[in-house]
Amino acid sequence: MIMNTVDLFGMKYKSETYLSLQKLVQSILPIESNINIHGSQGTGKSTWAQVILEKSGLTDNYCKIDVKEIEEEKFKAELEACKHRHILLENVDYLHKENQAILAQYIQARSLQVKPVVITTSKRSLSDLAREGLLRQDLYYKLSVFNIGLPDLKQVKEDIRTYSEYYLKVFSINYKRPQLSLSNEALARLESFFWVGNILELENVVERAVLLCDGEVISDKHIRFDEFQKYNSLDLSLGMSLSEVERRLILQTLEHTQNNRTKAAHILGISIRTLRNKINEYKEAGLI
């Protein structure tokens, strides 16, 4: 996501959700307390985290560890190698129990000297993870002094225009095009879309529209969702029961993860036990 510091806090948001988040973040700068930033994929968690660090004067003075990208056995070494007080810990919801204990001990030990400041990102809130036994309770309290829940784009429909116009400006400059504008029809298409991929998906769609446009106005013909709809479709129809929608979503997620139940449960936001029970239920009913 290409949004920078100035743009994030200078955004002319319309939704109360984003306006409240802006106000909260600005009130706790420079950051001296642990924060969790959570939200669905593509909502801008990393961007918000980096902006908070930059606005706190810490552009180059923090360590970044992506739990999802490093091997489990290397987590302790990565943590101990950090020479800075501030740590950005991304995808903390992928942190296994053994490494959760290591992190809790690290924070406790360092607090006796110079208190570390940890900013974490996750798809789900830490309170949900702790409630389901997926996160140590003591670690939950250590990491969530402040919680920033980023909304899905479909929940802040009034800001689809805000982000669209921002990306139009960015890509017009990047591709050396005249400053483009959105037609009412193009905006209507953007506002009516479901946006499974959130802001990241919107960025992609707007970039494509800029490249397709040969004039100065983005029309509805330049707005193309086909590739996204292809991969995000559940083949739903009116009159389908909620239980059937749930079944299709679970089975498609299992197919996407190549039947990895741990990953599927994480994506679906449910416990492995719940997923196992659902699968057994479908098997007994002859639905799979």
Rank of each mutant, 00 (worst) to 15 (best):
M1Y: 08
N4L: 11
N4Q: 14
N4Y: 10
T5M: 08
V6T: 14
M11H: 08
M11G: 10
M11N: 06
Y13G: 02
L21P: 05
V25N: 08
Q26H: 10
S27E: 14
S27L: 12
P30Y: 10
E32Y: 14
S33D: 14
N34Q: 11
I35H: 11
I35S: 12
G39T: 10
G39M: 09
Q41D: 08
G42F: 01
T43C: 07
K45Y: 07
K45F: 05
S46L: 09
W48E: 09
W48I: 15
Q50I: 13
K55M: 13
S56K: 09
E69S: 15
E72H: 01
K74A: 03
F75A: 00
E80L: 04
E80K: 07
A81N: 11
C82Q: 01
K83V: 03
L88R: 04
L89K: 07
N91G: 02
Y94I: 03
L95E: 06
H96A: 09
E98A: 13
N99C: 00
L103W: 02
L103C: 00
A104H: 12
A104S: 14
Q105Y: 02
Y106K: 01
Q108K: 15
R110A: 12
P116F: 03
V117P: 08
I119E: 06
G133T: 08
L135V: 06
F146E: 13
L150G: 10
E158T: 11
D159C: 12
I160E: 04
R161G: 01
Y167W: 13
L168E: 03
Q179D: 07
Q179Y: 04
S183L: 02
A188M: 04
N198L: 00
L200S: 14
L202E: 04
N204D: 12
N204C: 05
V206D: 00
R208F: 01
R208M: 06
L212C: 01
V217A: 02
I223C: 01
E227H: 02
F228M: 05
F228D: 09
S233D: 15
L238A: 14
G239Q: 05
S243C: 05
V245W: 11
E246H: 15
R248C: 08
L249A: 12
Q252A: 11
E255C: 01
N259F: 14
R261M: 13
T262N: 12
A265D: 06
L275K: 07
K278E: 10
K278S: 12
I279E: 12
Y282M: 15
